[in-house]
């Protein structure tokens, strides 16, 4: 693996599968009496959150702590950290504290990339969501959840439905799922598909009903009601009617098809309560898997010798 995880595109198929296999081993930890491993003892992980996301921060925090890392939470909420120049100053502060990894959530696309490549810090940088760019660990946990339910993803059909334009989850998933051999279809009204999507290597559709019967996975994206004020769609009601997943649409799915959502859900907007709470829904499991996947990422980025990442398969170490 590379030293940083900034984009799902940083992961080769081997890298991604290594993360999934490692996560599988780490997931069993949740069932053990002592939910802690010593791998990152003495390492410091900083959660640098310029955007409020309690869910993601807690997930990373739990992951780092279960690997015995020291965790420092650095939140922009209620402080002066929101303007551009402070990203650099904050980075220099973290560097001075001796952070080994910086998990960064930022409202500006590319902020983690800047952090990793501008010479401000030497630590590994993990993108925990940047603007409308990417959220690679979310894609990894989504792929992990699919993999646990469906096995290998080669040839599996994944429909990602909703506000693709503003979704970092959709971008990372489109990249990672293709790396893992899945066939991705992005479903949205034309206003919510980015320009140039024809180069992404994915299918696109404006018609949810045509896509659902063939899908093995349906991933619903959050759609903010406020988008309606910028004329991305006329009304929330019309959006739900055309692109929302309700009980009637759920009955079009194959028996094995699972329903996912990266959260937080807008119930009644993109997904109805009966679907979110149905047997097909793996939304709660996604949260559990998030910790295991983030443990795997932190372990693989940080546990080895400094400046050396990648895996060593040599065994003559008895």
């Amino acid at each position: 693996m590379k030293r940083h995880l900034l984009s799902a595109a940083d992961l080769t198929r081997d890298d991604a599968e290594l993360v999934l296999r490692t996560a599988e081993e780490l997931r069993s930890l949740a069932d053990r009496p002592i939910k802690k491993l010593p791998a990152l003892r003495g390492r410091t992980v900083v959660n640098l959150f310029f955007e409020d996301s309690t869910r993601t921060r807690i997930s990373f925090e739990a992951a780092a702590k279960r690997l015995s890392a020291d965790v420092i939470n650095f939140s922009a909420k209620g402080s002066s950290l929101s303007k551009g120049e402070s990203l650099k100053d904050t980075a220099l502060t973290l560097e001075a504290m001796g952070a080994d990894a910086v998990v960064v959530r930022h409202g500006a696309s590319g902020a983690p990339h800047r952090l990793a490549h501008s010479g401000w810090v030497r630590s590994s940088v993990v993108n925990a969501g940047d603007g409308t760019h990417e959220h690679p660990t979310q894609a990894l946990l989504d792929a992990f959840t699919m993999w646990r339910h469906l096995g290998a993803l080669d040839g599996r059909r994944v429909a990602i439905v909703g506000d693709v334009l503003h979704s970092r989850v959709a971008r990372s998933n489109a990249l990672l799922l293709q790396t893992l051999g899945a066939e991705v279809t992005l479903v949205a009204p034309p206003t919510l598909l980015p320009v140039g999507i024809d180069t992404w290597g994915v299918e696109t559709s404006y018609d949810l009903d045509a896509v659902l019967p063939k899908a093995d996975v349906v991933m619903m994206l959050r759609v903010q009601r406020e988008r309606m004020n910028a004329s991305f769609f006329p009304t929330a009601r019309e959006y739900s009617r055309r692109y929302g997943l309700d009980g009637k649409r759920m009955r079009m799915l194959q028996d094995h098809t699972i329903v996912m959502h990266p959260g937080p859900m807008v119930r009644g907007m993109e997904i109805t309560a009966d679907v979110a709470d149905s047997d097909r829904s793996v939304i709660v499991e996604q949260v559990t898997n998030g910790v295991a996947v983030r443990m795997a990422v932190l372990y693989l980025l940080l546990s080895g010798a400094e400046g050396v990442t990648g895996t060593d398969e040599s065994e003559n170490d008895a």
Partner: peptide, 18 residues
């Protein structure tokens, strides 16, 4: 708007300047 609107702006998640 942040950069030229095109394939890259969509991929980089930077608002396009068409």
């Amino acid at each position: 708007a942040q950069m030229n609107e095109g394939e890259l702006s969509g991929r980089l998640g930077l608002t396009g300047w068409p």
